[in-house]
Simulated scan of single mutants.
Amino acid sequence: MKRKMIMAAAALIMAASCDNAEYSVIDNAVFISEAAPEDKFNQQVESIIVEGTVTRTLTIRLAKALDTDIEVNLGMDRDFIAGYNERKGTSYLILPEEYLAFDRKVTIEAGSLAKTVTLEIREFTSPNGEAYAIPLQIESVSGPVGTAGDARHIMFILMTPNIQKAPKLTATNSGGCNVIFDNASLQGLGEWTLEFWMMMDAEDGNNAFYSNSSPLGFGTFYFRWWAKNAAGDGPWFQNQLDGVYLDDHSHPWEAGRWYHVCYTYSNDLMQLYINGEKDADLQFTAGRTFSFGRLNLCSGLGYMQFYSLAQIRLWNKCLAQSTIQDAMNRAVPVDSPGLCAYWKFDEGSGKILKEAVNGFDIELKTTPTWFDDINFLHPND
């Protein structure tokens, strides 16, 4: 461990020399320990789950102690968060100051190596699906020291779970319900993403639903929850497009559990992600496009069985896996680039399921019952 710390200090000094080329000799540097643990210098982004008030400590450190006080000024690195958003296809905003408290000026006293800083992150709301982060950086240092390359900044991504009600849908209230929409952004797509949360209350095909059932469909895209005994040895996730099937036999689903399901399509390749992890893919012939002109619910559900859906999102672009994982547990802004249709299924009462982007609302046949608030960060707890 001692050798690792020596190597770290040496690397930090070298980084500081590169960062401060105007100095001919620099033999010390200030850095954030948590941004570069041990001898690794690539841990600059970390996630924090915010439920209630959360505290996080950081260590502002010198490579070696000095005989004079060193003042370090901390602030927000707007360039860092902008670059991250561009690389990852995300849209994080800097957390407003009223939800964050920390000492902006830190003094490392003479003879000391480090000073601890405490961040207090207060619970906040995201009524329009906003996503927040804290891109903290060492802005300036007084004294004969520089800052240590990438270890001068760290960004905390703040994860706030989507908590919402969800309908218990049956064949009685949802069977055959559909909405037709004419939207140019959903026609002739060479790339797209469909994602949603789902739960089915039974696995047995004799009771739950029939072999060709499709609880959710978009035009020629039919998503199936293939049951036990329906045809084969399910249950598994399946998709059917004009007689072409994408089955995921490696991921059987369980009754009563929520799953995040996401299909992406680009460059003639369809990929299926379950809970943010890639599970299956299917290569199509060149030049295929898709049109999404209709949403339909519940074709072939069994008697007295129910299923539930939440956060159905249709995009006219192929989302990267990191983007899927980033937003699967929370709501997203209605004006997100590429978001073409968005059913939250969070009304909690009534029989109208609203669509947030273009008003493609669904009217159920009868009023369903509803789950109480579900925390989609851990919906199965």
Rank of each mutant, 00 (worst) to 15 (best):
P333K: 15
G232Y: 05
G256I: 14
N229G: 02
K278S: 13
D242R: 14
L319V: 09
D335S: 12
D242H: 09
F237D: 11
Y303R: 09
H260Q: 13
I274P: 13
R313V: 07
T289I: 14
T289S: 12
N296P: 00
R294F: 04
R257T: 07
N267E: 13
A230K: 04
R257F: 03
V261C: 04
L246C: 05
W315S: 04
S308R: 12
Y263C: 03
D233W: 14
W258N: 11
F237E: 14
N267T: 05
H251S: 15
L301G: 09
S250W: 09
V261P: 04
H249C: 01
S291Q: 13
L301I: 04
L301D: 00
N316Y: 09
R313N: 07
A231T: 05
G234Y: 11
G232Q: 00
V244I: 14
F290N: 00
L309I: 12
A255L: 04
E277D: 10
L282M: 15
C318F: 02
P337F: 14
D268Y: 11
N267S: 12
G293V: 01
W315F: 15
A286P: 08
G293N: 13
L314G: 06
T323F: 02
P337C: 14
M270I: 11
E277N: 03
K278C: 12
W258L: 06
D247A: 10
I324Q: 11
I312C: 11
R257K: 06
L297H: 09
S336Y: 15
Y259A: 05
T285R: 10
F292S: 02
